[in-house]
Simulated scan of single mutants.
Amino acid sequence: MNRQQRSNLIEFQPRAFNAGTVEYINSQWVFFDEETEEAALVDEFIHQEVEVLRNNKWCKGFLLDNGCIQTGNEKFFLQDQELVRIRKQLIYSFERLLDELNDEAFVQFLNTLNSLNFSIYDCIYCYNHLTFLDNENGVSGVNFLVLDNEEMICNVQHHFDYHEKQNDRFEITMSTGKRAVIERIS
């Protein structure tokens, strides 16, 4: 699996965006999240990927200063009361963990989370022990994740053993008591 295929799997995960409207108030752009009804200055999202609904079509670009959106070689400006989706950022330690997983473990982990109605964008905590280890002679340990999809909480323990073979074991426990275990040995 190449980098683009991984990126596509990540890009099309559920709940990858905060959706809402923008308003121009007191000479500042303000984003109102439709789900939480919280307000935030649009400036907090500068240089992040956004999508703006124009002519019943989502236009993808990157947010610049003063409500400007860069799409390829074109630029356009936000309009008052416009629908906007702002891509959520993954927790850095979790993003690094996903990069460390081999392709089979990566796909199996994402598919299992999705089948349990969770998305990688639901991750609210990640302790990535791999980042503290020297991988020269092989490593083993456990990473800890907590995900919240607003209906349930999910705890994931990722046991890894990377020596002669690469072993990834994900022990998943949800707040409902439902459990799942997936293991990948390469």
Rank of each mutant, 00 (worst) to 15 (best):
M1S: 12
N2D: 11
R3A: 04
Q4H: 15
Q4W: 04
R6G: 05
S7K: 14
Q13H: 00
A16H: 00
F17M: 05
F17R: 00
F17V: 05
G20N: 13
T21R: 05
T21Y: 14
T21H: 10
Y24A: 08
N26Q: 04
N26D: 13
N26C: 09
F31I: 02
F31T: 01
E35V: 12
T36Q: 09
A39W: 09
A39E: 06
A39M: 12
A40H: 08
L41V: 09
V42E: 14
E44G: 02
F45G: 07
I46R: 15
I46A: 04
Q48P: 02
Q48I: 00
V50E: 15
V50L: 06
V50N: 06
E51P: 01
V52G: 04
N55Q: 13
N56H: 05
K60A: 12
G61D: 11
F62Q: 12
L63F: 01
L63K: 00
L64A: 11
N66F: 09
N66W: 09
N66K: 11
G67H: 08
I69R: 00
E74K: 09
K75V: 02
F76Q: 05
F76M: 03
L78F: 06
D80S: 11
D80K: 03
E82A: 04
L83V: 01
L83S: 14
R87N: 07
R87E: 03
K88V: 03
Q89S: 13
L90T: 04
I91G: 09
Y92T: 11
S93L: 06
R96M: 07
L97H: 14
L98E: 13
L98Q: 07
E100Q: 07
E100M: 11
N102T: 05
N102F: 14
F106R: 02
F106I: 02
V107C: 04
Q108V: 02
F109M: 14
L110N: 02
N111H: 08
N111V: 03
T112M: 08
T112G: 07
L113M: 09
N114E: 13
S115V: 09
S115R: 15
L116R: 10
L116V: 08
F118R: 02
S119F: 06
S119R: 01
I120W: 00
C123N: 04
C123K: 00
C123W: 00
C126I: 01
Y127N: 13
H129W: 01
F132P: 00
D134L: 13
N137H: 15
N137L: 13
G138V: 09
S140N: 15
G141A: 11
N143F: 00
N143Y: 00
L147V: 06
E150G: 02
E150A: 09
E150F: 08
E151L: 08
M152Y: 05
I153T: 06
I153E: 12
I153Y: 07
V156M: 08
H158C: 08
H159D: 13
H159F: 14
Y162K: 03
H163S: 02
E164S: 05
E164V: 03
K165A: 12
K165V: 12
Q166F: 14
D168V: 01
R169Q: 11
E171D: 11
M174T: 14
M174E: 10
T176G: 05
G177Q: 07
G177T: 02
R179M: 14
V181L: 15
I182S: 08
I182F: 01
E183Q: 12
E183T: 02
R184N: 09
R184Q: 09
I185C: 14
S186Y: 15
